[in-house]
Design a protein around this nucleic acid. Sequence first.
RNA 1: GCGCCCAUAGCUCAAUUGGAUAGAGCGUCUGGCUACGGACCAGAAGGCUGGGGGUUCAAAUCCUCCUGGGCGUACCA
Length: 589
Amino acid sequence: MNDIFRKNAAEALTEAIAKAYPDKIEDICLAVKTNTQELADFIYNKLESPKDAKNGDYAFPTFILAKPLRNKPPEIAGNILEHLDKTVFTQTGPYLNMKISTQDAAEEVLSNIFSRQNNFGNEILDESKTIVIDFSSPNIAKPFGIGHLRSTAIGNSLYRLFEKLGYNVVGINHLGDWGTQFGKMIAAYKKWGDDEKLKVAPIDHLFDLYVKFHKEAETDQTLESEGREWFKKLEEGNQEAAELWQIFKDYSLQEFQRVYDLLGVHFDYYTGESFYNDKMDGVIERLQKAGLTKESEGALIVDLEEQGMNPCLLKKTDGATLYATRDLAGILYRHGAYKFDKALYVVGMDQQEHFKQVFKVIELLGEDFAKDLIHVSFGFIRFKDQAMSTRKGNIVFLNDVIKTAIEKVTNIIKEKNPNLPDLEKTAQQVAVGAIVFADLSVSKHKDVNFDWDEVLNFEGATGPYLQYTHARLSSLVHKYGLDISGDANFSFYNSPEEKALIMQLHKFGQTIRLAAGKYEPNIIAAYLLELAAVFNRFYQRKDNDGKLVKIISEDNPEETKARMLLVASVRIVMKEGLRLMGIEAPEEM
RNA sequence: GCGCCCAUAGCUCAAUUGGAUAGAGCGUCUGGCUACGGACCAGAAGGCUGGGGGUUCAAAUCCUCCUGGGCGUACCA
């Protein structure tokens, strides 16, 4: 029961129910499958917030009591109401509504924010817990496409959310730096590669080779096997292969680093697939000892037929390993190294079967932490009507998207705020904010339609809208100039707009928990949009004559003081919320 | 064929996990700048929640069948 208001409501209701129906409590508990001690918890969880603010802040639907009490919900509500404080509770039909006074809410919420600042919403765990998050994980020697943004943005946000909830978070970039594709790249480079081009524009050149290889492979059957051979050599330590691999990897990492810097993404480890190169034999051995392996069609597999799945492939006919092998090694290694309580894999939905298999194999090994392995899957980014395919060269580069967005933002700023001091930096922050927000504002299990116009539109439900609101808040604080204090007179908060703002701020903590619990950053996005909307309504509210009610009023210093506390609180939460999404909050824009 | 996911306003998405009249943004139309920042705000129009059946006091949400789309379905990752 984290929400103090809600807790009060639940306890008052529980008590009132006990008074109204003293000899029916057991029947009620029986009907809702709980016990007397936990009845308050049950009610706590049943409380809703009414859609219409005039119905109060918390509502208890009495339908669930109808059966054990053999009565109509509205009558039940009426009976319970008799034992409640009628200045706080009201009844509308079957609902019992509780209204928090704006003053009480302000005192609780605003002083909390004022004293904790950006730590507002933080939690401290009773015992330390570690969560490993595997995210981004791009393929080396492939360009960083807009498709890779999802894993990066979601993972980065989850990293920050869990950190805020008190977890010890380990962020891992499981680079795709091993596998058959490298054989293909080496083969392609040896055939068509150009040292000069590689030096000048490494990523472009590697990308061209990648596309060319797959195009040629459609007609030339020998290419695929050539690629496989080169990978085999690479795994066996062939020097020429190893050197080329290192070059590809170095160039790609440089490129990725630029993107990560731009996005403000941090990893604790860059342990990619090649890191497990020397750990796979041990894994295979362990699986063999456990009697899980089997040879089939010349390959080494773990048969999962009994589990209704396709076999998990450990070794190809030619003896080379597969990514399942490396993921298994990764899981076992991470569990040993970090003793995680949970391990998240922020990887696209198309790999669902793969993770099901791999997690099942861990379970078959008798490791009970298999239940702590979670595939946080998400839908694709779709480009217009066609799916994006790196192999066909049909890809939108994240760099190009960012570059275009920066240009557009720069033009808008030049027009709207020509004297902005740090134009370049701000334009970058806003551009990245727009792109990241566009990605994170869609529920992760849905495909995202990538639409240039939409990503570059900065009006409405967008990152720049939130940033703009933050800039406005900051501007107010600067204009006010005086110190903002936590002991304002809360009785000045008398408008519905102020009440709505305070209650929205109050929801920050539970929103973070919800978002983290569901691995859904878009819940934060929705929360911030609502916060901004509620604030902007407050900011532009008019009196009965249609005149703007300004926040800063020289005639009413005490009232201004109270309002500025609210403004400062919203600003703190907005900035922190954006941070949780991996978005910067410039003071001016 | 089998498995998983998706379908809500013209478009892009929400909906407190089963609750009160399904909400936002874009686009369209109307209004608000003698501005504490108009990347904003107020209002209007726009819905058989893909379709049928079922469970329930209550279904966009749960079950079932169907339609349409996406992804996966052992030697790519």
